[in-house]
Write a protein that binds this DNA or RNA. Structure first.
Lengths: 187, 187
DNA sequence: CTTTTTCGTTGACTTCGATCAAGAAAACAA
DNA sequence: TTGTTTTCTTGATCGAAGTCAACGAAAAAG
């Protein structure tokens, strides 16, 4: 899995031995459109690297899907909270397109942490990066209006805008589809 | 610093040698009420353990203080984003009471990570915990109304309720003081 | 291609938090 | 104590997002 190796190398290069042990633990999965790779109530016992595809991470409140995050190729997809705490997931993860993902299971990862200090470090760096991601998202809810959040999206011209239907974008921004439509009309 | 050692032991016990090296790097600071331990524009080059006291972590938007977090004795206080990325802080950290904190500086911590695998692991566990903290807070903004957020606070009967003036609570909950007053009146 | 379903827009109206303003209560200082 | 400042409450009004409903456009299914 070259893409993953490159990703790691940018964060912190693994030794050859560590990478080989790590690669042993990767489980490739091909997932078809609309498949759930995690359902509510399940424990999330893996972290997966997205090779290709897009996944959405959502929560159902009062029959309505609230999208918390999207994951694209090159991201790690997991319910990290459930993964860390062992509690059942309150969220679903759905692949929106045919996708290829590479899972590492928790039990394997914990062993790898013990066996290779450089993987332990990678684990720290990944946790730190995931922290930065949620922290930024929290900020945009604490300090910005829905309109400002939409403008931010426009500016960073994220894949979201091309790849994701508008009603899902609305959910991601924390508003109703009608409201996003009106925000766009305001220009 | 016994409290800190206990805290670590619950997460992951350090070896005696690691703890001794770690303790060497702790810098004790006594801070008086209203002192800023971090200002906007500064790089946050430390993580501090709060021995006693309360700190507030806030951002100023259009002349208004928006409180993102509170830190109590037993917590780590830092601008973790600035600490990790090296970017200047957009937030202030103020001690609301006379406080005692124990700083570890980034340059020292990075060395400790290299020297002791158990400290590296502790670093991962702390990053994971900080992740869980923001993620929970993000959830409460994504999925709950201000009223529900206030009810949550009431239930977990946090120190916040006793120790913090209501207008700061309001800011923390993401509403104006008038609104919190009305939420309380609704019961 | 036509039919059916999903998605996006628009209008009328409601709801809830923000804003502005005034006054009461509590905390603090002289 | 008294006086001053800070914090909390209450009322009136405003505004942005939600809700409900209708309709046209686009996409999917046949």
């Amino acid at each position: 899995m070259e893409a993953l190796k490159n990703y790691f190398n940018k964060l912190f290069p693994l030794t050859e031995a560590a990478w080989q042990d790590f690669e042993q633990c990767l489980v490739k999965e091909t997932v078809v459109k609309k498949d759930l790779i995690l359902e509510e109530g399940q424990k999330c016992d893996f972290i997966a690297f997205v090779g290709e595809g897009i996944c959405r991470f959502y929560y159902v409140k009062e029959g309505e899907e609230k999208i918390t995050a999207f994951f694209f190729s090159g991201d790690f997809v997991t319910n990290y909270r459930s993964f860390l705490t062992g509690q059942p997931s309150e969220h679903y993860i759905e692949c929106m397109q045919q996708s290829v993902i590479y899972k590492v299971f928790k039990k394997d990862l914990l062993q790898l942490y013990d066996q290779h200090q450089c993987i332990e470090r990678l684990g720290r760096l990944i946790a730190e990066n995931l922290y930065l991601t949620v922290a930024r998202r929290l900020d945009s809810f604490l300090y910005a209006t829905p309109e400002e959040r939409y403008q931010e999206l426009l500016q960073r011209n994220s894949k979201l805008l091309q790849e994701v239907p508008q009603y899902m974008l609305a959910s991601y921004l924390g508003v109703k589809p009608e409201t996003l439509s009106r925000i766009r009309a305001r220009k």
